[in-house]
Every structure is written in structure tokens, then in C-alpha cells.
């Protein structure tokens, strides 16, 4: 059963990208374990506002685990110690009474801190802009059922497409690699006949952009997969490697 707990928070506070940050410690009393982690931070912020202090800045939006806006590196895990959830779905029942919880921003060269726990993840959008699409314009496309797609492929594509672009993979990776994110998009589109046509071009363009933006090299530690809130598999990375090497050998 959920009960009320007292906790100590160590929260990273940082004024701006260039400024030096530090941990601040806060005590919270009587937090319901039924509340979500972000609701707990709401309570903290409400307290801070009432004391006339500036609230902790963090990204969040849908609060149902799908928009990918929330981040937070909690007690050594992106999206906290629970598995297969985003921070917004993490609940306080995962923490014990008297716990000290350390909250840090994503730390990766690709994701500079904007303020406190808020980071800039636009690099991921840039990778998609480089090739994470099927080049079709609106209109003039064939009937949806014109090309049958094997259910197995459609299901695998959907597994990969579940990626929410939150950045936990790069945040978890000791190499700051974005390979899981890139591979999920490349896999989704390579598995479907509609996306297959420009699969080679896509893999090359997205890898090139990823490298250009300074993300690290994948060393297959599997930390990304373990921390991914949507359980994206690193078998996608194998597929990406395959697609990329094949494409380059063909050239």
C-alpha cells in the first residue's frame, strides 16, 4: 500500500549553459507514494515559490510517457530506477522513507544544459532532418493496401517506431552515442517497403549527421537499451550497421 514518506533531494542547479552548477539539498515531508515523481517536484517547486525562491526548471509535458519531453537522471539512471517508464510515469512508491534522491540533468556533449535540469536536445531533430523520413509529398500516393507488408515486418517496424526521442540512450551511454535513437528510425523505415527504397541513402545521411554533431561511437555496452523507457532493442543497431556498411560497400 502507498504511504507518505520523507525524502531528501539533491538537485542540480545551474543558471545557464556556461555557468557553473552545483547540487542543492532540499527536504520534503509527507510525500504520498501514490504521486508521480514530477508531482513530487511540483510540490517542491510550490514550496520554493511560496518561499519566494526560483523553482527548479525541468522539462515535462504530456506526463503520460509518450511525448519524450521529460528527462532527469535520477539516482544514476535516466528516467529513474524503474524500468520501461519515463520520469513522468515514475512513482514515488519506488522510493523508501528517508531516501536521498539525486537528480541530475542529462549529461552529454550533444545535450548542453540550458538551466538546472533542462537540456537542449535539438540535435536529435537535426539527425531526423538529415534523413529520417520517406521522401513523399502530400497527395499522389498509392492506396494504403496497394503494397502488402508482412505482419512480422510491420510489428518489428512498430517496435522500433516506439522511440520517443527523449535522449535517455545518449544520456545513459558512457560514449554519448546516439546510435540507438538513429537505429530505431533507420530500422523502422528500412523494414517497410515504403521506406526501403531510400534505406541506403537514409542510413548514410543520418550517420553522417550524427557524427557531425559530435555524438560518440557505439561500443555495444547495452546501457542505452537497458535505460530506454520504450525498450528499443540494440538489434536495431546491428541493422543500422548492416544498412550502413552495405550502402557504403555498394558505392
Amino acid at each position: 500500500m502507498d504511504k507518505n514518506i520523507n525524502i531528501t533531494l539533491k538537485v542540480w542547479r545551474q543558471k545557464g549553459p556556461k555557468e557553473k552548477g552545483a547540487f542543492e539539498t532540499y527536504q520534503l515531508k509527507d510525500v504520498s507514494q501514490g504521486s508521480s515523481f514530477l508531482e513530487m517536484l511540483d510540490i517542491l517547486n510550490e514550496t520554493l515559490v511560496n518561499e519566494g525562491k526560483e523553482p527548479v526548471v525541468f522539462d515535462h509535458d504530456c506526463r503520460e510517457g509518450i511525448c519524450g519531453m521529460c528527462s532527469l537522471y535520477i539516482d544514476g539512471h535516466p528516467h529513474g530506477p524503474d524500468t520501461s517508464v519515463t520520469t513522468c510515469q515514475l512513482h514515488m512508491r519506488k522510493f523508501n522513507d528517508g531516501a536521498t534522491i539525486t537528480i541530475e540533468p542529462w549529461r552529454s556533449a550533444g545535450f548542453p544544459v540550458i538551466r538546472d535540469l533542462m537540456v537542449d536536445r535539438y540535435a536529435y531533430d537535426k539527425i531526423i532532418q538529415a534523413g529520417g523520413f520517406v521522401s513523399v509529398n502530400t497527395g499522389g500516393v498509392p492506396d494504403a493496401n496497394a503494397i502488402p507488408v508482412p505482419k512480422k515486418d510491420a510489428d518489428l517496424a512498430m517496435d522500433a517506431a516506439a522511440c520517443i526521442g527523449c535522449g535517455a540512450c545518449a544520456a545513459a551511454c558512457k560514449n554519448g552515442s546516439a546510435m540507438l535513437f538513429v537505429s530505431a528510425k533507420v530500422s523502422q523505415l528500412a523494414l517497410l517497403p515504403q521506406g526501403r527504397i531510400e534505406a541506403a541513402r537514409r542510413a548514410k545521411a543520418m550517420i553522417a549527421k550524427m557524427d557531425e554533431l559530435g555524438f560518440g561511437n557505439c561500443t555495444n555496452t547495452r546501457a542505452c537499451e537497458a535505460e530506454c523507457p520504450k525498450d528499443i532493442s540494440i538489434s536495431n543497431i546491428a541493422r543500422l550497421n548492416r544498412e550502413f556498411i552495405k550502402a557504403k560497400l555498394k558505392d
Binding site: 523520413f133 520517406v134 513523399v136 502530400t138 497527395g139 500516393v141 498509392p142 492506396d143 494504403a144 502488402p148 507488408v149 508482412p150 505482419k151 510491420a154 510489428d155 517496424a157 512498430m158 517506431a161 523502422q188 523505415l189 517497410l192 515504403q194 521506406g195
Partner: peptide, 12 residues
């Protein structure tokens, strides 16, 4: 039609 052409993985 449009969404399928974009690579939306609808259930099949």
C-alpha cells in the same frame, strides 16, 4: 494512404 506512404507502421 498518405500515412502508409510515410512509413507509419499501422497494425496489419
Amino acid at each position: 494512404d498518405q500515412c502508409v506512404a510515410q512509413g507509419v507502421p499501422f497494425a496489419r
